[in-house]
Design a protein around this nucleic acid. Structure first.
Lengths: 207, 207
DNA sequence: TAGATTGTTAATCGATTAACAATC
DNA sequence: TAGATTGTTAATCGATTAACAATC
Protein backbone atom coordinates (compact mmCIF):
# COMPACT_ATOMS: atom_id res chain seq x y z
CA UNK A 1 0.00 0.00 0.00
CA UNK A 2 3.06 2.21 0.02
CA UNK A 3 3.45 4.90 -2.60
CA UNK A 4 0.74 3.48 -4.76
CA UNK A 5 -1.15 6.70 -5.31
CA UNK A 6 0.53 9.28 -7.57
CA UNK A 7 1.35 12.59 -5.92
CA UNK A 8 -0.81 14.48 -8.39
CA UNK A 9 -3.77 12.38 -7.34
CA UNK A 10 -3.12 12.82 -3.62
CA UNK A 11 -3.23 16.57 -4.13
CA UNK A 12 -6.69 16.34 -5.62
CA UNK A 13 -8.28 13.97 -3.13
CA UNK A 14 -8.98 16.73 -0.56
CA UNK A 15 -10.74 18.74 -3.28
CA UNK A 16 -13.00 15.83 -4.15
CA UNK A 17 -13.68 15.30 -0.47
CA UNK A 18 -14.78 18.87 -0.10
CA UNK A 19 -17.22 18.60 -2.98
CA UNK A 20 -18.69 15.48 -1.42
CA UNK A 21 -19.10 17.13 1.96
CA UNK A 22 -20.74 20.21 0.44
CA UNK A 23 -23.15 18.06 -1.54
CA UNK A 24 -26.88 18.48 -0.74
CA UNK A 25 -27.98 15.39 1.19
CA UNK A 26 -30.61 14.71 -1.46
CA UNK A 27 -27.91 13.86 -3.98
CA UNK A 28 -26.90 10.32 -3.20
CA UNK A 29 -24.78 9.93 -6.26
CA UNK A 30 -22.10 11.99 -7.96
CA UNK A 31 -20.56 11.81 -11.43
CA UNK A 32 -16.97 12.24 -12.48
CA UNK A 33 -18.11 15.29 -14.44
CA UNK A 34 -19.45 16.99 -11.31
CA UNK A 35 -16.27 16.31 -9.38
CA UNK A 36 -14.19 17.46 -12.32
CA UNK A 37 -15.90 20.82 -12.58
CA UNK A 38 -15.39 21.52 -8.90
CA UNK A 39 -11.77 20.44 -8.88
CA UNK A 40 -10.82 22.13 -12.13
CA UNK A 41 -9.76 19.02 -14.04
CA UNK A 42 -11.18 16.83 -16.79
CA UNK A 43 -13.65 14.04 -16.00
CA UNK A 44 -11.29 11.36 -17.28
CA UNK A 45 -8.72 12.56 -14.80
CA UNK A 46 -11.17 12.19 -11.93
CA UNK A 47 -12.04 8.66 -12.99
CA UNK A 48 -8.38 7.78 -13.19
CA UNK A 49 -7.79 9.27 -9.75
CA UNK A 50 -10.67 7.36 -8.23
CA UNK A 51 -9.48 4.14 -9.83
CA UNK A 52 -6.51 4.26 -7.45
CA UNK A 53 -8.90 3.95 -4.53
CA UNK A 54 -10.28 0.79 -6.05
CA UNK A 55 -12.99 1.69 -8.51
CA UNK A 56 -16.52 1.44 -7.26
CA UNK A 57 -18.56 3.63 -9.51
CA UNK A 58 -21.62 2.32 -11.27
CA UNK A 59 -21.65 2.68 -15.03
CA UNK A 60 -24.45 4.87 -16.25
CA UNK A 61 -25.10 6.12 -12.72
CA UNK A 62 -22.01 7.52 -11.02
CA UNK A 63 -20.39 7.13 -7.62
CA UNK A 64 -22.18 6.62 -4.31
CA UNK A 65 -21.46 9.89 -2.55
CA UNK A 66 -21.39 8.59 1.01
CA UNK A 67 -19.25 5.60 0.16
CA UNK A 68 -16.79 7.68 -1.84
CA UNK A 69 -16.55 10.23 0.94
CA UNK A 70 -15.64 7.53 3.44
CA UNK A 71 -13.15 5.98 1.08
CA UNK A 72 -11.30 9.24 0.46
CA UNK A 73 -11.41 10.24 4.12
CA UNK A 74 -9.93 6.89 5.09
CA UNK A 75 -7.14 7.25 2.52
CA UNK A 76 -6.33 10.69 3.85
CA UNK A 77 -6.06 9.33 7.37
CA UNK A 78 -9.07 11.15 8.73
CA UNK A 79 -10.16 8.48 11.13
CA UNK A 80 -9.50 10.39 14.32
CA UNK A 81 -8.46 13.87 15.38
CA UNK A 82 -4.92 14.67 14.27
CA UNK A 83 -3.05 16.94 16.71
CA UNK A 84 -0.91 19.67 15.18
CA UNK A 85 1.57 22.06 16.80
CA UNK A 86 2.06 25.61 15.56
CA UNK A 87 5.47 27.12 16.19
CA UNK A 88 5.55 30.90 15.93
CA UNK A 89 2.73 32.90 17.52
CA UNK A 90 3.01 35.90 15.22
CA UNK A 91 0.13 37.13 13.10
CA UNK A 92 0.04 34.08 10.92
CA UNK A 93 0.37 31.64 13.82
CA UNK A 94 -2.44 33.39 15.65
CA UNK A 95 -4.66 33.37 12.59
CA UNK A 96 -4.04 29.67 12.03
CA UNK A 97 -4.87 28.88 15.66
CA UNK A 98 -8.38 30.07 15.01
CA UNK A 99 -8.73 28.71 11.51
CA UNK A 100 -12.05 26.85 11.40
CA UNK A 101 -10.97 24.78 8.40
CA UNK A 102 -8.60 22.80 10.60
CA UNK A 103 -11.30 21.59 12.97
CA UNK A 104 -13.66 20.92 10.07
CA UNK A 105 -11.08 18.65 8.54
CA UNK A 106 -10.25 16.70 11.65
CA UNK A 107 -7.17 18.58 12.82
CA UNK A 108 -6.75 19.92 16.32
CA UNK A 109 -4.32 22.64 17.41
CA UNK A 110 -2.59 20.86 20.29
CA UNK A 111 -0.10 23.63 20.98
CA UNK A 112 1.01 27.12 19.98
CA UNK A 113 4.62 27.96 20.75
CA UNK A 114 6.81 31.02 20.64
CA UNK A 115 10.34 31.90 21.60
CA UNK A 116 9.34 35.37 22.77
CA UNK A 117 8.72 35.36 26.54
CA UNK A 118 6.43 38.37 26.26
CA UNK A 119 4.06 36.36 24.09
CA UNK A 120 3.99 33.31 26.32
CA UNK A 121 0.74 33.11 28.26
CA UNK A 122 -1.34 35.07 25.78
CA UNK A 123 -4.46 33.33 24.55
CA UNK A 124 -5.72 33.22 20.98
CA UNK A 125 -8.99 31.46 20.22
CA UNK A 126 -8.67 29.51 23.42
CA UNK A 127 -5.10 28.40 22.72
CA UNK A 128 -2.50 29.55 25.25
CA UNK A 129 0.92 30.42 23.87
CA UNK A 130 3.65 28.26 25.40
CA UNK A 131 7.39 28.65 25.50
CA UNK A 132 9.14 26.84 22.68
CA UNK A 133 11.36 25.30 25.37
CA UNK A 134 8.62 22.79 26.05
CA UNK A 135 8.16 21.82 22.42
CA UNK A 136 9.64 18.32 22.55
CA UNK A 137 7.83 17.36 25.72
CA UNK A 138 4.50 18.61 24.37
CA UNK A 139 4.95 16.71 21.13
CA UNK A 140 5.51 13.50 22.97
CA UNK A 141 2.83 13.93 25.60
CA UNK A 142 0.13 15.13 23.24
CA UNK A 143 0.90 12.83 20.35
CA UNK A 144 1.50 15.66 17.91
CA UNK A 145 2.07 14.34 14.40
CA UNK A 146 2.24 17.47 12.26
CA UNK A 147 4.26 20.65 12.88
CA UNK A 148 3.35 24.00 11.35
CA UNK A 149 6.20 26.49 11.18
CA UNK A 150 5.19 30.16 11.19
CA UNK A 151 8.37 31.61 12.64
CA UNK A 152 10.64 34.17 11.06
CA UNK A 153 12.79 32.63 8.31
CA UNK A 154 15.96 32.72 10.41
CA UNK A 155 14.45 30.47 13.09
CA UNK A 156 12.73 27.98 10.81
CA UNK A 157 15.59 25.54 10.21
CA UNK A 158 16.30 25.17 13.91
CA UNK A 159 12.65 24.42 14.61
CA UNK A 160 12.56 21.93 11.75
CA UNK A 161 15.59 20.17 13.23
CA UNK A 162 13.90 19.96 16.60
CA UNK A 163 10.64 18.72 15.12
CA UNK A 164 12.44 16.02 13.14
CA UNK A 165 14.47 14.98 16.19
CA UNK A 166 11.26 14.72 18.19
CA UNK A 167 9.88 12.28 15.66
CA UNK A 168 7.66 14.56 13.56
CA UNK A 169 7.42 13.31 9.96
CA UNK A 170 5.21 15.99 8.46
CA UNK A 171 5.92 19.70 8.40
CA UNK A 172 3.95 22.55 6.89
CA UNK A 173 6.37 25.42 6.38
CA UNK A 174 5.18 29.01 6.01
CA UNK A 175 8.64 30.50 6.45
CA UNK A 176 10.32 31.72 3.27
CA UNK A 177 13.23 29.28 3.42
CA UNK A 178 13.94 25.86 2.03
CA UNK A 179 14.24 23.46 4.95
CA UNK A 180 16.74 20.65 5.06
CA UNK A 181 15.20 17.61 6.69
CA UNK A 182 16.21 13.98 7.15
CA UNK A 183 14.97 11.31 4.77
CA UNK A 184 11.43 10.32 5.56
CA UNK A 185 10.26 13.73 6.70
CA UNK A 186 7.72 15.29 4.34
CA UNK A 187 7.76 19.08 4.05
CA UNK A 188 5.16 21.15 2.29
CA UNK A 189 5.99 24.77 1.77
CA UNK A 190 3.46 27.55 1.53
CA UNK A 191 5.11 30.80 0.60
CA UNK A 192 2.64 33.62 0.28
CA UNK A 193 4.87 36.08 -1.51
CA UNK A 194 6.00 33.37 -3.91
CA UNK A 195 2.38 32.83 -4.86
CA UNK A 196 2.01 36.54 -5.53
CA UNK A 197 5.14 36.58 -7.65
CA UNK A 198 3.86 33.72 -9.77
CA UNK A 199 0.65 35.67 -10.33
CA UNK A 200 2.68 38.72 -11.11
CA UNK A 201 4.48 36.87 -13.88
CA UNK A 202 1.27 35.86 -15.60
CA UNK A 203 -0.02 39.40 -15.14
CA UNK A 204 2.78 40.85 -17.18
CA UNK A 205 3.16 37.97 -19.57
CA UNK A 206 -0.43 38.23 -20.80
CA UNK A 207 -0.38 42.00 -21.07
CA UNK B 1 7.00 36.54 -25.42
CA UNK B 2 3.70 34.92 -24.50
CA UNK B 3 3.66 31.57 -22.74
CA UNK B 4 7.27 30.87 -23.49
CA UNK B 5 8.26 29.85 -19.97
CA UNK B 6 6.87 26.52 -18.72
CA UNK B 7 4.65 26.77 -15.67
CA UNK B 8 6.96 24.52 -13.66
CA UNK B 9 9.80 26.92 -14.29
CA UNK B 10 7.76 30.00 -13.36
CA UNK B 11 7.01 28.39 -10.01
CA UNK B 12 10.69 28.06 -9.28
CA UNK B 13 11.86 31.50 -10.36
CA UNK B 14 10.82 33.15 -7.07
CA UNK B 15 12.81 30.53 -5.16
CA UNK B 16 15.94 31.26 -7.19
CA UNK B 17 15.37 34.96 -6.67
CA UNK B 18 15.25 34.49 -2.94
CA UNK B 19 18.52 32.61 -2.90
CA UNK B 20 20.14 35.39 -4.90
CA UNK B 21 18.83 38.06 -2.55
CA UNK B 22 20.01 36.19 0.53
CA UNK B 23 23.48 35.70 -0.96
CA UNK B 24 26.39 37.29 0.92
CA UNK B 25 27.54 40.32 -1.10
CA UNK B 26 31.00 38.82 -1.32
CA UNK B 27 29.72 36.07 -3.58
CA UNK B 28 29.50 37.61 -7.00
CA UNK B 29 28.83 34.39 -8.77
CA UNK B 30 26.49 31.47 -8.19
CA UNK B 31 26.40 27.94 -9.64
CA UNK B 32 23.44 25.88 -10.76
CA UNK B 33 24.33 23.45 -7.97
CA UNK B 34 23.95 26.13 -5.30
CA UNK B 35 20.60 27.24 -6.64
CA UNK B 36 19.49 23.64 -6.97
CA UNK B 37 20.18 22.82 -3.35
CA UNK B 38 18.22 25.80 -2.14
CA UNK B 39 15.27 25.18 -4.40
CA UNK B 40 15.14 21.44 -3.88
CA UNK B 41 15.74 20.39 -7.48
CA UNK B 42 18.60 18.96 -9.55
CA UNK B 43 21.26 21.21 -11.03
CA UNK B 44 20.33 20.25 -14.59
CA UNK B 45 16.83 21.43 -13.91
CA UNK B 46 18.08 24.82 -12.77
CA UNK B 47 20.19 25.20 -15.89
CA UNK B 48 17.23 24.29 -18.05
CA UNK B 49 15.06 26.81 -16.18
CA UNK B 50 17.61 29.58 -16.57
CA UNK B 51 18.00 28.81 -20.25
CA UNK B 52 14.44 30.13 -20.73
CA UNK B 53 15.62 33.54 -19.56
CA UNK B 54 18.25 33.52 -22.26
CA UNK B 55 21.30 31.76 -20.98
CA UNK B 56 24.07 33.90 -19.66
CA UNK B 57 26.12 31.73 -17.42
CA UNK B 58 29.84 31.36 -17.87
CA UNK B 59 31.13 27.83 -18.32
CA UNK B 60 33.49 26.82 -15.58
CA UNK B 61 32.45 29.80 -13.48
CA UNK B 62 28.71 30.07 -12.95
CA UNK B 63 26.15 32.85 -13.18
CA UNK B 64 26.69 36.50 -12.31
CA UNK B 65 24.53 36.87 -9.22
CA UNK B 66 23.53 40.50 -9.69
CA UNK B 67 22.73 40.09 -13.35
CA UNK B 68 20.70 36.95 -12.77
CA UNK B 69 18.79 38.62 -9.97
CA UNK B 70 17.81 41.48 -12.24
CA UNK B 71 16.86 39.14 -15.02
CA UNK B 72 14.55 37.05 -12.85
CA UNK B 73 13.05 40.11 -11.15
CA UNK B 74 12.29 41.62 -14.54
CA UNK B 75 10.63 38.43 -15.76
CA UNK B 76 8.49 38.34 -12.65
CA UNK B 77 7.38 41.89 -13.27
CA UNK B 78 9.07 43.39 -10.26
CA UNK B 79 9.90 46.71 -11.78
CA UNK B 80 7.64 48.85 -9.66
CA UNK B 81 5.37 48.43 -6.65
CA UNK B 82 2.42 46.21 -7.45
CA UNK B 83 -0.75 47.21 -5.58
CA UNK B 84 -2.87 44.38 -4.17
CA UNK B 85 -6.31 44.44 -2.57
CA UNK B 86 -7.28 42.08 0.24
CA UNK B 87 -10.96 41.26 0.50
CA UNK B 88 -11.99 39.84 3.87
CA UNK B 89 -10.60 41.43 7.02
CA UNK B 90 -10.84 38.33 9.19
CA UNK B 91 -7.84 36.81 10.93
CA UNK B 92 -6.13 35.79 7.76
CA UNK B 93 -6.79 39.09 5.99
CA UNK B 94 -5.43 40.99 8.98
CA UNK B 95 -2.35 38.83 9.14
CA UNK B 96 -1.68 39.29 5.44
CA UNK B 97 -2.03 43.06 5.75
CA UNK B 98 1.00 43.07 7.98
CA UNK B 99 2.95 40.40 6.17
CA UNK B 100 6.47 41.76 5.66
CA UNK B 101 7.15 39.37 2.78
CA UNK B 102 4.80 41.36 0.56
CA UNK B 103 6.66 44.63 0.92
CA UNK B 104 10.00 42.85 0.58
CA UNK B 105 8.89 41.44 -2.74
CA UNK B 106 7.55 44.63 -4.20
CA UNK B 107 3.87 44.30 -3.37
CA UNK B 108 1.86 46.94 -1.60
CA UNK B 109 -1.44 46.43 0.21
CA UNK B 110 -3.54 49.13 -1.45
CA UNK B 111 -6.76 48.23 0.30
CA UNK B 112 -8.34 45.93 2.88
CA UNK B 113 -12.09 45.38 2.49
CA UNK B 114 -14.85 43.75 4.46
CA UNK B 115 -18.57 43.38 4.16
CA UNK B 116 -19.06 43.65 7.93
CA UNK B 117 -19.87 47.26 8.89
CA UNK B 118 -18.55 46.70 12.41
CA UNK B 119 -15.10 46.00 11.01
CA UNK B 120 -14.99 48.99 8.71
CA UNK B 121 -12.74 51.69 10.08
CA UNK B 122 -10.54 49.39 12.14
CA UNK B 123 -6.83 49.66 11.43
CA UNK B 124 -4.38 46.81 11.08
CA UNK B 125 -0.73 47.56 10.51
CA UNK B 126 -1.62 50.97 9.22
CA UNK B 127 -4.25 49.70 6.80
CA UNK B 128 -7.79 50.95 7.42
CA UNK B 129 -10.59 48.48 6.69
CA UNK B 130 -12.97 49.80 4.05
CA UNK B 131 -16.45 48.74 3.05
CA UNK B 132 -16.50 46.26 0.22
CA UNK B 133 -19.03 48.56 -1.45
CA UNK B 134 -16.13 50.72 -2.61
CA UNK B 135 -14.15 47.83 -4.05
CA UNK B 136 -14.56 48.62 -7.73
CA UNK B 137 -13.83 52.31 -7.32
CA UNK B 138 -10.72 51.60 -5.25
CA UNK B 139 -9.42 49.10 -7.80
CA UNK B 140 -9.71 51.63 -10.57
CA UNK B 141 -8.39 54.63 -8.67
CA UNK B 142 -5.45 52.84 -7.07
CA UNK B 143 -4.47 50.71 -10.03
CA UNK B 144 -4.89 47.45 -8.15
CA UNK B 145 -3.77 44.51 -10.25
CA UNK B 146 -4.01 41.54 -7.89
CA UNK B 147 -6.90 40.56 -5.61
CA UNK B 148 -6.46 38.39 -2.53
CA UNK B 149 -9.64 36.69 -1.33
CA UNK B 150 -9.75 35.85 2.37
CA UNK B 151 -13.51 35.85 2.84
CA UNK B 152 -15.65 32.98 4.05
CA UNK B 153 -16.15 30.38 1.31
CA UNK B 154 -19.77 31.39 0.67
CA UNK B 155 -18.75 34.93 -0.30
CA UNK B 156 -15.73 34.11 -2.41
CA UNK B 157 -17.39 33.52 -5.78
CA UNK B 158 -19.26 36.81 -5.63
CA UNK B 159 -16.05 38.68 -4.86
CA UNK B 160 -14.25 36.87 -7.67
CA UNK B 161 -17.00 37.94 -10.09
CA UNK B 162 -16.65 41.53 -8.98
CA UNK B 163 -12.88 41.46 -9.23
CA UNK B 164 -13.02 40.00 -12.73
CA UNK B 165 -15.65 42.53 -13.81
CA UNK B 166 -13.44 45.31 -12.48
CA UNK B 167 -10.63 44.14 -14.70
CA UNK B 168 -8.51 42.14 -12.24
CA UNK B 169 -6.66 39.31 -14.02
CA UNK B 170 -4.88 37.71 -11.08
CA UNK B 171 -6.52 36.32 -7.96
CA UNK B 172 -4.98 34.61 -4.96
CA UNK B 173 -7.75 32.60 -3.32
CA UNK B 174 -7.55 31.48 0.31
CA UNK B 175 -11.21 30.47 0.50
CA UNK B 176 -11.89 26.75 0.36
CA UNK B 177 -13.87 26.84 -2.86
CA UNK B 178 -13.06 26.43 -6.53
CA UNK B 179 -13.71 29.74 -8.23
CA UNK B 180 -15.21 30.03 -11.68
CA UNK B 181 -13.60 32.89 -13.56
CA UNK B 182 -13.66 34.15 -17.15
CA UNK B 183 -10.98 33.13 -19.62
CA UNK B 184 -7.81 35.13 -19.06
CA UNK B 185 -8.13 35.44 -15.31
CA UNK B 186 -5.45 33.52 -13.43
CA UNK B 187 -6.41 32.07 -10.06
CA UNK B 188 -4.03 30.53 -7.60
CA UNK B 189 -5.58 28.71 -4.70
CA UNK B 190 -4.00 28.31 -1.30
CA UNK B 191 -6.02 26.01 0.88
CA UNK B 192 -4.47 25.51 4.28
CA UNK B 193 -6.49 22.52 5.36
CA UNK B 194 -5.89 20.87 1.99
CA UNK B 195 -2.16 21.16 2.63
CA UNK B 196 -2.60 19.49 6.00
CA UNK B 197 -4.64 16.70 4.48
CA UNK B 198 -1.96 16.01 1.90
CA UNK B 199 0.58 15.76 4.72
CA UNK B 200 -1.80 13.54 6.63
CA UNK B 201 -1.90 11.11 3.72
CA UNK B 202 1.87 10.73 3.62
CA UNK B 203 1.89 10.41 7.39
CA UNK B 204 -0.27 7.33 7.28
CA UNK B 205 1.03 5.95 4.05
CA UNK B 206 4.58 5.71 5.32
CA UNK B 207 3.59 4.29 8.70
C1' DT C 1 -33.77 -0.46 -26.13
C1' DA C 2 -31.81 4.33 -25.59
C1' DG C 3 -29.20 7.19 -22.65
C1' DA C 4 -25.76 7.84 -19.37
C1' DT C 5 -21.56 7.14 -17.25
C1' DT C 6 -17.82 4.24 -15.79
C1' DG C 7 -13.13 1.91 -16.25
C1' DT C 8 -9.24 1.40 -19.03
C1' DT C 9 -6.31 1.75 -22.89
C1' DA C 10 -3.20 4.08 -25.84
C1' DA C 11 -1.63 8.48 -27.37
C1' DT C 12 0.04 12.66 -26.06
C1' DC C 13 1.97 16.02 -23.52
C1' DG C 14 5.07 18.28 -20.33
C1' DA C 15 8.76 18.00 -17.00
C1' DT C 16 12.95 15.83 -15.19
C1' DT C 17 17.34 13.91 -15.62
C1' DA C 18 21.76 11.82 -17.07
C1' DA C 19 25.28 12.61 -19.90
C1' DC C 20 28.65 15.04 -22.27
C1' DA C 21 30.71 18.27 -25.55
C1' DA C 22 31.80 23.10 -25.19
C1' DT C 23 34.39 26.43 -22.98
C1' DC C 24 35.99 29.41 -19.31
C1' DT D 1 46.85 21.99 -19.13
C1' DA D 2 43.56 20.44 -15.41
C1' DG D 3 39.41 21.52 -13.12
C1' DA D 4 34.99 23.40 -13.08
C1' DT D 5 30.66 24.37 -14.76
C1' DT D 6 27.58 25.62 -18.43
C1' DG D 7 24.16 24.66 -22.32
C1' DT D 8 21.80 21.24 -24.74
C1' DT D 9 20.48 16.82 -26.29
C1' DA D 10 18.16 12.55 -25.90
C1' DA D 11 16.12 9.34 -22.78
C1' DT D 12 13.02 8.78 -19.29
C1' DC D 13 9.49 9.51 -16.40
C1' DG D 14 4.96 10.89 -14.79
C1' DA D 15 0.54 13.00 -15.67
C1' DT D 16 -3.28 14.20 -18.76
C1' DT D 17 -6.52 13.22 -22.16
C1' DA D 18 -9.38 11.38 -25.96
C1' DA D 19 -11.73 7.61 -27.09
C1' DC D 20 -14.54 3.78 -26.60
C1' DA D 21 -16.11 -0.77 -25.11
C1' DA D 22 -18.53 -2.24 -21.03
C1' DT D 23 -22.54 -1.98 -18.51
C1' DC D 24 -26.05 0.01 -15.54
Amino acid sequence: MKGTIPRATVKRLPLYLQVLEDLPPAERTVSSGQLARAAGVKAANVRKDLSFLGSNGVRGVGYDAAQLRNQIARKLGRMDACPVAIIGAGNLGQALSGYPGFIDRGFEVAGLFDVDASKVGATYYGIVVESVDGLEKAIEQRGVSIGIITTVPAAAQDIADRLAAAGIRSILNFAAVTLEVPEGVEVRRVDLSTELQILSYYLHESA
